[in-house]
Amino acid sequence: MTPALYRRTAPYWLSLPGFVLFAVMLFVPLVMTLLLSFYSFDYTAGIQTGFSWHNYADVVSDDYFHEIFWRTFRYGLIVTLFCIVIGVPEAYILNRMRAPWRTISLVAIIGPLLISVVVRTLGWVILMGNNGLVNTGLERIGLAKIPFIYTETGVIVALIHVMIPFMIISVWAVLQKVDPATENAAASLGASQPKVFFRVVVPQVIPGILSGSLIVFSLTTSAFATPAIIGGRRLKVASTTIYDEFLNTLEWPLGAAIAIILLLGIMAVILGWNRLIERRYAQVFQ
């Protein structure tokens, strides 16, 4: 192989292993799911191959599924919002910390990512469950219990806890590229501390907020363990519904249709979001 040819082709065959992995692990299952969503299901005959839109029609026309999808996206929006409100100041504080403390805090933030979501969610159950630590304590001192398990508030709080590291990390990554002198410049021009933060720091980390929001939103809307454990059967979201369709009622085609709709919904949000970023900020942050 000549050096020139080698240079030209190297990127392709070097990326081949990655491509094969994605093709086998992602593309094939996706196509199979897509096909499955057009099949039909019969309780006596099982799954029937064929092509029909009736699974989609069932989902689109049924209020039961509307509620589930609305809840899924509502969780996504609320969790993303809270992650921004909590995560951005936290990233800012983290960035201002001195040498040893910054690393310690960063480990404290990233550390939980190393623990399974199931374990972290069960931690909330132990702490906030009906017979958990907090509620038992409250009962002992004669106060009312705080409902947490099987409430939307509970699911959202636990999801924020799971998702917030992603927001902090993406905002922090952008913050490191922000010239700290811009804060001094703003102060010297007469800006108070809150004004420095909201008019100079936040606008500069918007790319980080937007990419963090993308991660948090898509992970929240497709989250399974937390809504399943804390929300239970009563507060179903799209992914727990898919699970039930596949494993409990065994209506695989319907489950596949829900999965495809969820995927398309998340993709629509992500693409729309990206458009917004590009239109608004391409000029400023190239």
């Binding site: 002198a181 001094n184 410049a185 703003a186 100079v200 500069q204 400023v284």
Partner: peptide, 10 residues
């Protein structure tokens, strides 16, 4: 400032 410290978003 040495780095000018202009506000990049403005």
């Amino acid at each position: 400032f040495q780095s000018y410290a202009l506000f990049p978003h403005l």
